[in-house]
Design a protein around this nucleic acid. Structure first.
Lengths: 197, 197
DNA sequence: TTTAAAACAGGCAGCCTGTTTGTTATCTTC
DNA sequence: GAAGATAACAAACAGGCTGCCTGTTTTAAA
């Protein structure tokens, strides 16, 4: 990697990290680019060199977040060996909700992203990450004959993922995240189990 | 009602209506107050007299939306007579999804509201409207012994409502809302039926 | 009729965004 | 290795928007 590309990647990463922290803390609209670049130890000129606009920076933050998320979760799911699809789905749910106890993922990914990116683009990105995992999980469950297959899969995955997201918000926004998790987790699992046949 | 209060209420209503149309069309952040007051045939001075700030105007729009929504839906649910709680819930779901075919409710209530009001306030308002209906519906189902009662009700209501909302977005954002509804409705109903015992 | 207050209108200051122009460092090519 | 080209950054600028503040008019009350 060339010296130039290295430095460039570093400032890019600093900008994303600073934006991520600030967006998580106070939201997209309440944080200005001057504050972001100051925290990143950079300048607005550099920022607008690397990103088309503020929204583009947010998009990078969001994709990073999703990337991390599915890496974590699918690692845990794969750890099971793939014998039992239902167990894998359950593990995925538990893993996700556990990660929502630290809350920046929930705020950026579920509260800010839809309004900043617009629903269409948000959905499109999601499809490459979290939604993709859910769809795959449900498909495996069906292939194993463990889930009812008389419901449109794609729509079902959307609805399930939304429920999971809300559970995450419930946890992330609670005074006592651990006890909120104890409430939210059974709720999501109950929905999932209700899909068995 | 005095002549003054009458006129005052009229401009207030005009402002809310204009804001509602514009927010639904292009989103909260992309619409400025100058455009809102121009469409309302009013002035920024008047707007800041009636509302604390732009967010306060949005809040009024959102509450109006929720008000209309639950009036419509609970009217239909009550029309069933209350004999069968599961049928009432199903009717509520169908009624909501039907209303999402015209899309401003979905965009304002589900995409914009959480980020504009913040999750805590959004949830608080929701609790007085849609979430309240869902909680009541689930409680009736449990009282009738038709729904499993081993899951925290409040969390369950949140998760179900979020799923319902996502289904609404799926419909509102689709090229062909009617066919999207044909996919999304069974998905939500499948989750609901899965909660029976 | 006088006084107070509500309803509104317009202007002002401060901030933010996106663009543009300018400068420095790095890479490539001859 | 020198020179042109390009990427990386910096800083100033214009336009727009928000919230506030100061007036003005209309209505209600005393």
């Amino acid at each position: 990697m060339s010296r130039q590309a290295e430095k460039s990647e570093a400032t890019r990463a600093h900008l994303i990290a600073a934006a991520r922290a600030l967006f998580a803390e106070r939201g997209y609209a309440a944080v200005g680019t001057p504050e972001i670049v100051e925290r990143a130890g950079s300048s607005r000129g550099a920022m607008y060199h690397h990103f088309k606009d503020k929204k583009d920076l947010f998009r990078a933050v969001y994709e990073q977040l999703q990337q991390e998320l599915i890496e974590e979760i699918s690692a845990e799911m794969d750890g099971l060996g793939g014998a039992d699809p239902m167990a894998a789905l359950e593990t995925g749910v538990r893993s996700y909700l556990r990660s929502c106890v630290e809350a920046d993922r929930a705020r950026i990914g579920l509260i800010e992203a839809p309004s900043v990116l617009g629903w269409a683009e948000w959905r499109e990105i999601d499809e490459r990450y979290a939604l993709g995992v859910v769809i795959a999980g449900l498909e495996l469950g069906r292939a194993a004959g463990m889930l009812r297959d008389d419901v449109p899969l794609r729509a079902l995955a959307h609805v399930v993922l939304a429920g999971l997201g809300e559970a995450g918000l419930l946890i992330a926004g609670a005074d006592d995240p651990e006890s909120a998790r104890a409430d939210a987790e059974p709720a999501v699992l109950a929905l999932l189990h209700g899909l068995r046949r």
